[in-house]
């Protein structure tokens, strides 16, 4: 493929190429600028921000804002820092991602290899459910969580994220398994292998790429969620809600450096996942999972 591209790469002159490179670099700077501003200013003492230049590197380097954001900044009424909320997010994300991914894999397997009448209508309903604006379910969800005694708890948030995440994971696995030869599954059936045995021995071993996609997708979405956390978090608010409380607090001096440190702390897990596994995500998506 790369050889073919070489032939057909649109021939461009030196001036055009310089222009293209310039533009690409300019955009790279545009995308990097906020990250640079956040990191640089999170390492400055406050007077250096209010009296100085946002784009300048710190003159007086300090990690004090990071320590404050992590363990002593005022979140709402308590000076707890973001630490307990970070923990809430971890406790919420791990089970929610695991459960929704397992369910998605099983659903995708059924919908492609054990088809039955009306299965595409069910899948259509499931697919549509991925895209609903969540405002439409907020009110009844608040009521049901209250009735179940799960309001304001981590299990409640896990339930919400599993319920509204399973459509996406099912979509990923279904499209991926659809490309897997059904004859192999048939042959195994004739040999007497049952539903779970086929899943375990045949489907699961080839599911690596799409599992990476599903896990990254779910992890990013659930970690970054704000609406459900703010609506149903109660005593177990996730990181995003705590960060917003920290930044929006109207009392006292605005400690920009602490806010920036907090924002990076909130972004760190998803950024790390992206840096470590981003390339597998893109590759997995290309492996026939979602049409580009």
């Amino acid at each position: 493929m790369s050889v073919a591209t070489q032939d057909t790469a649109v021939s461009t002159g030196r001036v055009t190429r310089t222009f293209i490179y310039l533009l690409l670099i300019l955009f790279a700077l545009f995308y990097l600028m906020p990250l640079f501003v956040m990191v640089a200013n999170s390492l400055k003492p406050l007077p250096e921000i209010t009296g100085g230049n946002m784009m300048a590197l710190p003159q007086d380097w300090t990690i004090e804002p990071w320590l404050q954001a992590w363990s002593s900044a005022q979140i709402g009424v308590e000076p707890t820092g973001l630490k307990p909320y970070f923990l809430n997010s971890v406790l919420m994300v791990v089970p929610a991602v695991a459960i929704s991914t397992v369910l998605g894999a099983l659903n995708g397997y059924v919908l492609t290899k054990w088809r039955f009448r009306g299965d595409s209508i069910l899948f259509g309903l499931m697919l549509f459910s991925c895209f609903i604006p969540f405002q439409i379910v907020l009110i009844p969800m608040a009521m049901i969580l209250g009735k179940l005694g799960l309001a304001g708890s981590i299990p409640g948030l896990v339930l919400v994220h599993v319920v509204y995440g399973v459509g996406f994971t099912t979509l990923y696995y279904r499209n991926y398994y659809a490309a897997f030869p059904t004859e192999l599954v048939r042959a195994a059936m004739i040999d007497g292998a049952g539903f779970f045995r086929i899943f375990w021995r045949i489907m699961l071993p080839v599911s690596g790429p799409i599992t990476v996609v599903s896990v990254i997708w779910q992890f990013t979405n659930i970690w970054n969620d704000f609406l459900f956390g703010a609506s149903f978090g109660g005593q177990s608010q996730p990181m995003t809600v705590a960060l917003n409380n920290l930044v929006q607090s109207s009392t006292g001096v605005k400690e920009y450096n602490v806010h920036f440190a907090g924002a990076i702390l909130a972004a760190l897990p998803t950024l790390l996942v992206y840096i470590v596994a981003g390339r597998y995500f893109v590759r997995g998506l290309m492996a026939g999972s979602v049409k580009g």
């Binding site: 917003n244 920036f260 909130a266 972004a267 992206y274």
Partner: peptide, 17 residues
């Protein structure tokens, strides 16, 4: 990479920028 961030983080950053 911005796609990996939460809108809350994006909002916080741009609010001050």
């Amino acid at each position: 990479y911005p796609m990996a961030l939460s809108f809350i983080v994006t909002g916080t950053a741009w609010k001050w920028i």
